[in-house]
């Protein structure tokens, strides 16, 4: 019952800061990255885009369809590898967009927005994924 009388506003505002420190942003970003890895481990099929698919495509275009390329496969590879990298990155970006939209629809993103966290930290799993893809 003693807790009933609410403290004055100065008490409420005591620990409130105007900005997020760099250290906090890093810690928040890492926490969000933890969330992203958890998610990836629960839905491993999404991970195939960035792990298996590039390998598969490289093997396919080098060995199976390689014979159709004029010249030899060795000189074709420097062109093929960056192409596949670019494709993988694009695929990941797509998945990233879809996930972000899903977060917004489900309401989790509102929760992140309503928390006093750094703006960069709100969607680090996106660029974490993109970075890992590259």
């Amino acid at each position: 019952m003693t807790t009933l009388t609410a403290p004055p506003a100065t008490d409420v505002l005591a620990g409130v800061r105007a900005h997020v420190s760099l250290r906090e942003s890093i810690s928040q970003t890492l926490t969000m990255a933890w969330r992203a890895t958890k998610k990836m481990r629960r839905n491993p099929e999404q991970f195939f885009d960035v792990t298996l698919q590039p390998l598969l495509f490289t093997a396919m275009f080098a060995y199976i369809f390689g014979g159709a390329v004029s010249g030899d496969v060795q000189s074709y590879l420097p062109l093929l590898i960056p192409g596949i990298l670019a494709q993988t990155t694009l695929t990941t970006c797509m998945a990233t967009g879809v996930q972000l939209r899903e977060d917004m629809d489900k309401g989790v993103f509102d929760r992140f927005k309503s928390l006093p966290i750094a703006r960069v930290a709100r969607s680090p799993d996106r660029w974490w994924r993109t970075c890992s893809a590259i």
Binding site: N43, K106, G107, V108, D110
Partner: peptide, 8 residues
């Protein structure tokens, strides 16, 4: 709408 992460 419950704003929690469904995957966790």
């Amino acid at each position: 709408y419950a704003s929690v992460d469904e995957n966790l």
